[in-house]
Design a protein around this nucleic acid. Structure first.
Length: 259
DNA sequence: TCAGTTGTTTATAT
DNA sequence: AATATAAACAACTG
């Protein structure tokens, strides 16, 4: 699930269910999900702390408290759920934050991604690593400046998290399809018009996806809606979609619309 | 049994 | 120094 739009939903979810709540206890059902801490240390560090307004950068969720911050990355199968009854826990709920009101569960089947504990903004920055600006808030000027400094193909550039942070495989295909740009196109062949179309399309796709509770299902005219279905055609022109590999990732495109 | 999966890191090669 | 490629991580599903 989790690309930028899903993680933004998790951010709002955490804000709704954890903001202002105090941590009673942290239960770790699978220590293998903890990346730079241990179950006892996590519980000790958070117990009694109160959650502040969470932040998001790209696909990272930053759960600030009046003590340390909890950093969550969701990999490909992460999720955040809320419950009141411990009996309702799922077997892939790896970490449970028992709060003064209900509990927030960090679920992750495949255990790509994980949980980090950070002690301040500098610690957060070093854990997140060299990310580009958030793809939803990057300015046109900054996007063009950063793009100019990149070489290679356009899709790997979008996916790399260093140009901008938050674009994943589905959104990358969606943006390039809507902007009518071939995913393997070398960046140096994109003129100013195409670069600007890329920027505007990326922002429009992300804004729209964030507004939807499930853009894969609800955006019926989008590529993601038909992506992977057998015999799927381009939602614009009906040409059978092409499935290929770009930058090592499965890629869907319309051979008629995307030159 | 095998291929495939919305992500990232690491090693290696170019 | 960047970029490209493959593998690894891990746990499923069809």
């Amino acid at each position: 699930m989790p690309e930028l739009p899903e993680v933004e939903r998790y951010r709002r979810f955490l804000e709704r269910h954890a903001l202002g709540r105090t941590v009673r206890r942290v239960v770790v059902t699978d220590p293998g999900i903890l990346r730079n801490t241990t179950a006892p240390a996590l519980d000790r560090s958070l117990r009694g702390r109160t959650f502040d307004r969470p932040d998001r950068h790209g696909k990272w969720l930053i759960g600030w408290t009046d003590g340390p911050a909890v950093l969550l990355h969701f990999g490909m199968t992460g999720d955040l759920v809320h419950g009141r009854d411990p009996g309702g826990r799922h077997r892939h709920d790896r970490v449970i934050f028992e709060l003064s009101d209900g509990e927030v569960r960090y679920r992750n089947m495949r255990k790509l991604g994980g949980l980090w504990l950070a002690h301040g903004p500098d610690d957060v920055a070093s854990i997140l690593g060299p990310l580009g600006p958030d793809a939803l808030s990057v300015s046109r000027r900054q996007f063009h400046d950063l793009l100019r400094a990149r070489r290679g193909q356009v899709k790997p550039a979008l996916l790399g998290q260093r140009l901008v942070a938050g674009v994943g495989n589905l959104i990358a295909d969606e943006v390039l399809w809507q902007a009518r740009i071939h995913p393997a196109r070398p960046l140096h062949t994109l003129d100013e018009t195409a670069r600007d179309r890329l920027y505007e399309t990326m922002k429009a796709v992300l804004r729209s996806a964030v507004r939807s509770d499930d853009y894969v299902v609800r955006r019926r005219n989008w590529l993601v809606h038909v992506r992977g279905l057998p015999g799927a055609g381009c939602p614009r022109c009906g040409t059978p979609l092409e499935r290929t590999q770009v930058g090592g990732r499965t890629t869907y495109l319309c051979p008629a619309c995307q030159r």
